[in-house]
C-alpha cells in the first residue's frame, strides 16, 4: 500500500474509533451525569474534610484539580486499559484483529475520543469547584499550564495504551486490576494533597504515573505562593520528564501490542469469553 493510502487509513481508523466515544455522549446522556457526579462526590467530601481541618482555602483548589484529573485517570483505567478486555467479552476483538488497519490507530482513536469526552466531565468538576466551593486559581501562566496539561494527557493516555495491550491477556483479573489501581494511585500520585508530603523518593517512584508530575506542575502554576514550600520538582524538569514519559509509553505500547497480540493468538485467548 502506498504511503498516502496508509496514512489515510490510519486517520480514518482513528476517527472511526473516536466517533463512538463522542457519539456515546449524545446517545446516553445520563452517563454524562453519572460520570460527572461520581468524581464530584468524592471531591466534595474531601473539600469538607479540609474545611473541617480549617485548612487554608488553597487546599480546596488542590482537591478540585485532583478531582478533575480523577476523571482522566478513571477513563484511562476503565476505557483504555480494560477496553480490549471488554471488546473480547463482547466479541469485537476478533473483528479488530481481522480489520486491515493499524491496531495503534484503534488505540489512538480510543484515547482521543476518551480525552474529549472526559474533558467535559473534568470541566464540570472545575466549574463546580469554582462556583460552589469558591476555589481560586492563579491565571498568570496559562500557556505553560496548557502545555503541561496536554503533555500530561499524552503521557497518561500513552500509559493507557500500554495497559490495554498488557490487559489483553487478562480475563476477570482485568476488572480487579483496574479497581486496584484506583485508591493506591490516588494516594501515590497525590490527587488530594501535595505529593511531596509522601517523601522525596516515594514521590520519585510515583512519577512513573504521569499524573503525579502533571498535578504537581499544574499546582505550582495555579497556586504559586502556596506551592513554594511544598513543590516536588521544578516545573521545567517535570515538563521534560512528562515529554520523555509520553514518548516512552507510546513506543512501549506499540511494541507491547504486537507482542501481546501474537501471544494471545498463539494461546487462543482472543476469542475466549467469560474467562
Amino acid at each position: 500500500m502506498i504511503f498516502r493510502k496508509r496514512v489515510e487509513l490510519f486517520l480514518r481508523t482513528v476517527i472511526g474509533r473516536a466517533y463512538p466515544r463522542l457519539i456515546g455522549l449524545q446517545r446516553e446522556r445520563s452517563w454524562l451525569i453519572f460520570d460527572t457526579l461520581l468524581p464530584l462526590l468524592q471531591m466534595s467530601a474531601f473539600v469538607f474534610v479540609y474545611r473541617a481541618m480549617q485548612a487554608p482555602p488553597e487546599y480546596t483548589g488542590f482537591v478540585v484539580l485532583g478531582g478533575a484529573m480523577t476523571a482522566y485517570w478513571l477513563n484511562v483505567l476503565w476505557s483504555m486499559a480494560t477496553q480490549l478486555h471488554w471488546e473480547k467479552e463482547n466479541g469485537n476483538l476478533a473483528l479488530f484483529i481481522m480489520a486491515p488497519t493499524s491496531r495503534m490507530a484503534i488505540l489512538l482513536g480510543m484515547a482521543l475520543g476518551g480525552i474529549v469526552a472526559t474533558s467535559f466531565r473534568a470541566a464540570a468538576v472545575v466549574l463546580v469547584g469554582i462556583f460552589i466551593f469558591g476555589a481560586h486559581f492563579s491565571a498568570e501562566r496559562i500557556p505553560e499550564l496548557i502545555g503541561i496539561f496536554l503533555l500530561t494527557l499524552i503521557a497518561l493516555y500513552g500509559m493507557g495504551m500500554l495497559f490495554s495491550s498488557l490487559f489483553l491477556l487478562y480475563g476477570r483479573e482485568a476488572w480487579h486490576m483496574s479497581l486496584l489501581l484506583q485508591e493506591p494511585i490516588y494516594l501515590l500520585s497525590g490527587f488530594y494533597f501535595p505529593v511531596r508530603s509522601l517523601g522525596y523518593w516515594t514521590a520519585m517512584g510515583a512519577s512513573i504515573v504521569p499524573i503525579t508530575l502533571g498535578l504537581d506542575a499544574m499546582r505550582q502554576l495555579l497556586f504559586p505562593r502556596m506551592m513554594q514550600q511544598i513543590k516536588f520538582l521544578d516545573v521545567r524538569i517535570e515538563l521534560l520528564v512528562l515529554a520523555v514519559l509520553g514518548l516512552v509509553f507510546l513506543f512501549l505500547a506499540q511494541r507491547s501490542l504486537s507482542y501481546m497480540e501474537r501471544l494471545a493468538c498463539q494461546e487462543g485467548r482472543l476469542t475466549v469469553r467469560g474467562q
Binding site: F46, Y50, A55, E183, L187, Y192, F193, S197
Partner: peptide, 8 residues
C-alpha cells in the same frame, strides 16, 4: 489518603 491530607 486521609492521613496524608491531615498531616499536610
Amino acid at each position: 489518603i486521609l492521613v496524608f491530607m491531615y498531616m499536610v
